[in-house]
Amino acid sequence: MSHHEMSVEDVKKHVRTYIAVFVALLVFTGITVGVSMLGQNQGWTVTTAVLIALFVASIKGSLVACYFMHLISEKSMLFGILALCAFFFLVLLLIPVITVSDNVGVH
């Protein structure tokens, strides 16, 4: 169902979802900070800390995108555009790998 044709009852249901997502986001924020402090005390490696922090942040980001931005009820064309965007975003993030694999002058 598109947002164009929502009834008042539908909106009320959405409001309950928004409040649940809000509470979940606050809880996940607490978890992010707690896990970070735990990692510091336990001497976790940077890789472990990065993976856990980004995993929790991804859950939070997905909640915001799916429910607050209504991505969960959007049409497929938007997903195509966002998938393309996500692909190029990953390319951007992987560009630094080139500097690691660049062996010019090393051998």
Binding site: T29, T32, V33, S36, V46, A49, V50, A53, L54, V56, A57, K60, G61, V64, A65, F68
Partner: peptide
């Protein structure tokens, strides 16, 4: 804008 901060927070403050 909120979503960007959700990633900035752990990346800059917690890692």
């Amino acid at each position: 804008v909120d979503l960007v901060w959700i990633f900035l927070f752990p990346v800059l403050y917690l890692l």
